[in-house]
Design a protein around this nucleic acid. Structure first.
Lengths: 123, 123
DNA sequence: GAACTCCATTTACACGTGTAAACGATGATT
DNA sequence: AATCATCGTTTACACGTGTAAATGGAGTTC
């Protein structure tokens, strides 16, 4: 079905730069995930099966490239959360973070600008 | 580990009103999940094991009550998404929805009010 | 008290996921 | 040519999850 958590870590690397070999991917995930090469290979094969990436031969090895855009993935995940927990609306989500004191000064400033823009557009 | 998707559906019912029996829960999830009674029982037992709910005897059956608050669950899920996809910051998340044209007029109005409040508080 | 009815508890089973080891093929080295 | 190194491919295996069926035990009814 969807892209799993571990698979997403691989995708993140490829979104940061592609095409890349399995070895490069392993190096790029690096510290946070203490993976063996075999683990990365398995994940790549599962992603291939899911058509989330494609492979092109480069000599004896393969280079991998994302087929789905990060934007699409982010959209799907975000909408999922929003629908499951906030009745599909954004304002309650932000209200939640606000109540939890999870809005940084910077967040507030940026949100303010963002809303002003939208407000103007709507004019 | 965490509360799974199906388990969350049961929790939602209990958050809406508790304590409730397995049968009442089954009835309350109703249409969207076409579950047998056994399914609900399994989920309840897993939730008990995870200390997410507790059971109290009521005659021959049990009544179930949440032990973790919906707020806590929502926080965890939301923070998870934010950290994984938006570098832990709220503004980029809202920007994402904005770019996807997923902000309703109502969302915008509410966000505006929210931000104004925060801005005032901060002085 | 034998049979029935309701619950709960136990067991099941396939599929996805995280995490690799084992095996195999193909090109490089002696 | 025989061996070594380097990839990819196949197989593995435990644990969580979704989804229940089977079993068991305690009241309830003939």
């Amino acid at each position: 079905m969807g892209i799993s958590e571990a698979e997403a870590a691989v995708m993140e690397v490829l979104w940061r730069g592609a095409p890349r070999s399995a070895e490069e991917i392993l190096e790029a995930v690096g510290a946070d995930r203490d993976w063996r090469e075999g683990t990365v290979k398995s994940l790549l094969n599962r992603l291939l099966k899911k058509k989330a990436i494609r492979a092109e031969r480069d000599g004896r090895r393969y280079l991998y490239t994302p087929l789905i855009a990060r934007e699409a993935y982010v959209s799907q995940e975000s909408k999922g959360l929003l629908d499951r927990l906030f009745d599909g609306r954004v304002a309650p989500l932000v209200a939640h973070f606000s109540e939890q004191r999870k809005l940084s000064r910077r967040d507030i400033a940026e949100l303010k600008r963002l809303i002003e823009e939208l407000d103007d557009e709507r004019g």
